[in-house]
Design a protein around this nucleic acid. Sequence first.
RNA 1: GCCCUCGUAGCUCAGCGGAUAGAGCACCGGCCUCCGGAGCCGGUGGCGCAGGUUCGAGUCCUGCCGAGGGCGCCA
Length: 574
Amino acid sequence: MTDIRTILEERLQAAFDTVEAGADPVLRPSDHADFQVNGTLPLAKRLGRNPRELAEGLLAAVDLGGICETVEVSGPGFLNLTLSAGFLADQLQAMAADEALGLAPTADPVTVVVDYSAPNVAKEMHVGHLRSTIIGDALVRLLQAAGHEVVRENHVGDWGTPFGMLIEHLLDLGEEEATSELSVGDLDGFYRQARASFDADEAFAARARARVVLLQSGDPETLRLWGILVGQSIAYFDEVYAKLGVLLTDADVVGESFYNPMLEGVVADLEALGLLVENDGARCVFPPGFANRQGDPLPLIIRKSDGGYGYAATDLAAIRDRVDRLGAGRILYVVGAPQAQHLQMCFAVARLAGWLPEGVEAVHVAFGSVLGPDRKVFRTRAGSTVKLVDLLDEAVARAAGEVAERNPDLDEGTRRDMARALGVGAVKYADLSNDRAKDYVFDMDRMLAAQGDTGPYLQYAHARVRNIFARGEVDPPPAGSPLVLAEPAERALGLRLLRFGDAVAGARQAADPHRLCLFLYETASAFSSFYDHCPVLKAPDGPTRLSRLALADLTARVLARGLGLLGIEAPDRM
RNA sequence: GCCCUCGUAGCUCAGCGGAUAGAGCACCGGCCUCCGGAGCCGGUGGCGCAGGUUCGAGUCCUGCCGAGGGCGCCA
């Protein structure tokens, strides 16, 4: 099926071309009609003509027969388009018959590498990882749905100086004891103890430093111990991912250590290109356009004065690997906003070195911080970071209370599934429905509220639709069933549903899931209004009943699919 | 000091250069002859300040004020 927007744009373009070839009609949704054409005003300005007269002329020239009920010149010279109910009904019928709900695959699929989540070995996942993981997951789903080849990369922090003390702590505890501690997910406890020994015990610190050297020199026994830490942590991350219901698995882990063998080449090649500058013993690149607080050029440190590699070296190696080995046409970094400058510098250096060719896009999909009620970075009352699992468990537990109250008749397993879908969905939706770039205040009461722009409200709307069929013991009408949009609420819902493709495309192009959230909330609202005003099972006649059932079914499918693209479940009951 | 992001209703947020700036929460008032009231319908209330570009600015540009973040060997 061809979406309405495309159809309208084609017809309008033909009319605009008669006045000035290529003039953009600037078609937009409107508060005053279904769509409005804004392009008349700039065009009139350019031609020095009266905008209303020009609009009148275009109105006469444009062929919208069978599509629009009315087209009129309005205000200073806009064209207001009101679609005909019959056309809308036909479009909806086609959409309902389409498995993909009108979501068309992209014309130019590329390989997109999405770098997200990135927890640290032997460190707890916290709310910062929540944002990266959830936003990244939604973007992966949106891109896959468009037919892009998506490579998920979880850039786990599995290398660096802290591993000296972590390995020594592991030895002090004994392998078995350490393994069991890590397997229950007390990662922060493990890390804290290691840190404490390092700070308090000089002998331990010396062992830790020696251990770093062994690790970096590839000592087999040290690598084996390191592998225990990494393996246990990744197993733990997998549990968290499963709890979150995201697509990431341990197969997507491409840790920092993966790039170790490539670092020497990064340095050598930068050297050969003449980009590397020795500065205070460190080897740096100074990409143009970056300055420090004195206004001097800002370095990207590739190799530290102690001979170790900076994380910039790893990030550059990753870019090369993604372009050369994975064939990336676009790389998305779902990373917090504070790292903007670092990433921009890496991209700049990669461009200078020719590792990031002209046609390959590198995009920092930046996001703001999660704040506590005091508007400071979210922490527990004790001042430590909040464990992601604790947060999820609390959300699910609260949802479970709600579910038990409303569905005392259901068996425990079903209730548990519902509570999980509800609790996790609430947390995800709250995060995704905010503008990525902004900080947001974490408020569990609000995200779990059943009213307002929340996950539970959307899931409820979906469950309500599904329940029409369960309660009425009817199946959704077969594909191709005719629709009638007689009531204003039917028309409003129908028009809303037809904008699904636009909403999905917009969210994908801007890498901004909150646009899809907004659409889904509006859809749920439109459905609720429709459901209140238009009896479905008790419709006045057979054709109306069938049409409303078809509209209800399409609503359920759009909500479920839309939520699915965000990584949020849509249970049939709740 | 320089750079980046953000200032929209009491609170939390939408708003793709277009008309009278929209929601939700809270508050006030309606709707149970109703298929799920976790709902629907209505009301009160707002673009940080000052310039500029434009036919038209919440949106783009400049300056100021305010908040957060970044600014050479942690990732």
